[in-house]
């Protein structure tokens, strides 16, 4: 499943890349793009869902997950539309879920992060108590029980598919595994999260706040 917002330049390449590796159903969730993303996705042979208004990256992903659930899919893999994630790693990513060992698999590429990003992740790891390497990777596979959690109203309140999602999953005792995957330099466009200094600042403070507010409280859990 590929969430896309104005990705006409790259979406077709991503879909063709997936088709070369696996014969899974491919769904592009178009977050109200104003370019030819949907047409490109169609001609590459993917299914498409078009949102009537722009809802943001995470909610577009949630829409795709919702569709997957309604059509009884057991695994959803999310992949960026900008060609960052290599389809060659798809099979590796779903392996731990197919084997019923884990509920969520995150595709990580340790080389891709620079020093500041690694430091930021380290801070967030410390606060959130998550022991995961790459908390922002959008290359993920979700199994059936994680899918159910990600469709809860609680999950709808999130903005990005990153730390908030992971904290929600780990608070719900999902088993999360990290799998080494191949990632490329972005072919076209820039990261939505790291587009400007103000955007970075807003993102970091928002995530930090969420991180602190959502720390799981053992005494609260026990009383449930």
């Amino acid at each position: 499943m590929i969430p896309a917002f104005n990705e006409e330049q790259t979406v077709m390449g991503v879909i063709l890349g997936i088709k070369k590796e696996v014969d899974w159903d491919i769904l592009v969730v178009d977050d109200n793009s104003i370019d030819a993303t949907v047409d490109e996705a169609h001609s590459a042979g993917a299914m498409t869902i078009s949102l009537p208004t722009r809802t943001g990256a995470w909610r577009a992903i949630q829409t795709g997950i919702r569709y997957a659930k309604s059509e009884k899919y057991n695994i959803v893999v999310t992949m960026d539309a900008d060609g960052q994630h290599s389809a060659k790693s798809l099979k590796d990513l779903v392996k731990p879920i197919l084997a019923n060992q884990y509920d969520t698999a995150i595709g990580v590429c340790t080389n891709r992060a620079n020093y500041t990003r690694k430091l930021t992740w380290k801070v967030f790891r410390k606060i959130s108590g998550l022991s995961l390497e790459d908390i922002t990777s959008g290359y993920r596979a979700y199994g059936a029980s994680s899918i159910n959690i990600l469709l809860s109203p609680e999950a709808t309140m999130l903005t990005f598919q990153d730390l908030g999602v992971l904290m929600l999953l780990s608070n719900e005792r999902q088993k999360i595994v990290e799998t080494e995957v191949v990632m490329f330099e972005r072919n076209f466009g820039i990261s939505k999260i790291y587009s400007s200094w103000i955007a970075i600042w807003v993102y970091l403070t928002q995530t930090l706040l969420l991180c602190i507010a959502k720390i799981s409280m053992p005494w609260y859990r026990n009383s449930e």
Partner: peptide
């Protein structure tokens, strides 16, 4: 919105 577009698609 999500439920609507999912229904639309189905």
């Amino acid at each position: 919105t999500q439920r609507l577009v999912v229904l639309e698609k189905r």
